[in-house]
């Protein structure tokens, strides 16, 4: 029996595979390092659309769209912890779920390692901003659904922004809003907020999450090949953008709270 057979769902054939195409995708081959970035300048990020409070069943929520990346986030809590042991600090629980149609290849609904690693990154990024010491015996659940994915880097940074905005929308005390930005190193250049294709072509990527209002970094994740100077340069550029993102998030939270 196929491994993805699940009695609790409507099942298709045991085995199916995505379509195989005759022609190769054109732009994967034609790109080279000398060519300038298409569509925007290297230090530009994709425009952010952020809407807090769309999910009225949740205590707080946020929907974020950066070009093709679309993420919905809901916060439930603080509510009573399921564990019986007493804990002085609250618990923050982050779960990420890819919708089956969010990636180029269909994601079977079973959880895989990718969800977990994304959840860990986002958890780390927002954890130190939440004042969990004020919420003994309670749990805050942050649920994130990725509706459309255009690069893991973008998902982590947008997911972090959405999670932080949703926590603020839920009225949970935080030290500051967390903003996040990613960068990819291609040759001599640094491209901010890379798409999936751009990230695949890069030598290394870096994701920064910070609280711009306090000037505190909450999470840095660097992967791939990068010199130390390059990484510092990436950090500086990301931090600059995070300040802009912070303004966008604060503005949209302000508008939502005024409207309600």
């Amino acid at each position: 029996m196929a491994q993805n057979y699940d009695r609790r769902r409507i099942n298709g054939p045991e085995d199916s595979y995505p379509p195989i195409f005759e022609e190769e995708e054109e732009d994967t081959l034609s790109w080279n390092i000398a060519k300038p970035r298409e569509g925007r300048s290297p230090q530009d990020i994709r425009p952010i659309f952020l809407q807090p409070g769309l999910i009225n069943q949740a205590n707080g929520s946020a929907y974020i769209e950066t070009d093709k990346t679309k993420i919905a986030c809901a916060v439930y809590g603080p509510r009573q912890s399921k564990t019986t042991t007493f804990s002085e600090n609250g618990r923050l629980n982050v779960e990420v779920k890819f919708s089956p149609f969010s990636c180029a290849r269909r994601k079977a609904p079973l959880r895989d390692a990718e969800d977990r690693s994304l959840a860990v990154s986002i958890h780390q990024a927002v954890l130190s901003s939440v004042r969990l010491e004020l919420l003994p015996k309670s749990t805050i659940d942050v649920f994130i659904t990725i509706i459309e994915n255009d690069g893991i880097e973008g998902c982590i940074s947008s997911g972090t922004i959405a999670a932080s905005a949703a926590l603020a929308d839920a009225g949970i005390e935080v030290l500051g809003l967390v903003a996040s930005c990613s960068a990819a190193a291609l040759g001599d250049e640094i491209w901010l907020d890379p798409t999936e294709k751009e990230a695949r072509k890069s030598e290394g990527t870096l994701i920064l999450a910070c609280m711009p209002a306090l000037g505190i970094v909450t999470n840095v994740w660097q992967s791939g090949r990068m010199t130390v100077e390059k990484a510092t340069q990436c950090l500086d550029l990301c931090q600059e953008r995070c300040t802009d993102i912070h303004a966008v998030v604060a503005q949209s939270l302000l508008e939502t709270s005024k409207a309600s």
Binding site: I10, D15, A74, S99, F143
Partner: peptide
């Protein structure tokens, strides 16, 4: 999402339609 598969032996000309609804904890 459209994918390619082998048909079942007793319905060699029929494709599959697989609808599923997910009610995640977020909703």
């Amino acid at each position: 999402k459209a994918e390619i598969a082998e048909p079942e032996l007793d319905h060699p000309d029929e494709g599959y339609l697989v609808p599923n609804l997910d009610l995640p904890a977020m909703c």
